[in-house]
Write a protein that binds this DNA or RNA. Structure first.
Lengths: 120, 120
DNA sequence: GGAAGTTGTGAAAGATTTGTAAAAAGCGGG
DNA sequence: CCCGCTTTTTACAAATCTTTCACAACTTCC
């Protein structure tokens, strides 16, 4: 039985919620369970801030009174697995939480410098 | 369109659900009943993760509260019978279950080294 | 600039899951 | 019953994942 797969998708990154898989630039990346749940929560709210408390509750089942750094560590490992885009994809909102930013083409500064006219 | 005998098939491995038989590289392999049921369940969902719980329920009829290592032992024997491909075919998804991966040609890295150009 | 609080990070410790060999337990036909 | 084969359990070893720790780096606010 084939149902259309639910996934997050942009030019560089695909997350398949059904297969629990991640691809970055066509390359398959293995995620651990916690990494996957964390990324799922973030991409499910792509573009929106997800507060630390919400992540700790949804992914870890922690209450509001638990102090841990495990979220930070997992964020770090996710960023790593997202390769060069890690920093761009997962944004830190200081004092609040994190936000997964859908891919946006970088300004083309280095690619196509503004009018290098032959000349002088 | 007619639906011929139901079987799983790839360049190295054929599983015939009707005959309850397995061939690896043209060689017939005898499977015990449990081995066969396990392999059937896995190949029937080739490419997809099958959670431990599902296997324990489908193949053994166990409920979610039963702790046993018999699944692991059977996986091991299946891998053995699949010969050199055992590890490649049956993938462990840590903390989740197993996945039967259809055959894929290995990357040809060693076969055709990237351009050794004569020169300098 | 300095204090207080927050996040980043590598490494270590802890916890859980899976692999495996070998022994024990089941099972069906003689 | 007894035998041969299959299946399950047992008991560790090994692999993998998760969390903590200690400290560096960074933010914010005064």
């Amino acid at each position: 039985m084939m149902m259309s797969t639910s996934l997050y998708q942009d030019p560089h990154c695909v997350v398949d919620f059904a297969l629990a898989k991640l691809w970055v630039d066509r390359r398959a990346i293995t995620l651990t369970r916690k990494e996957y749940e964390l990324l799922s929560t973030l991409t499910a709210n792509a573009g929106e801030i997800v507060p630390r408390g919400v992540l700790l509750r949804n992914v870890w089942g922690y209450g509001p009174d638990i102090r841990t750094r495990t979220l930070d560590v997992h964020i770090r490992r996710l960023r790593r697995k997202l390769g060069d885009y890690g920093e761009q994809y997962i944004e830190t909102i200081f004092g609040v939480g994190y936000r997964f930013q859908p891919w946006r083409e970088p300004k083309a500064f280095t690619v196509e410098p503004p009018m290098l006219r032959a000349t002088a």
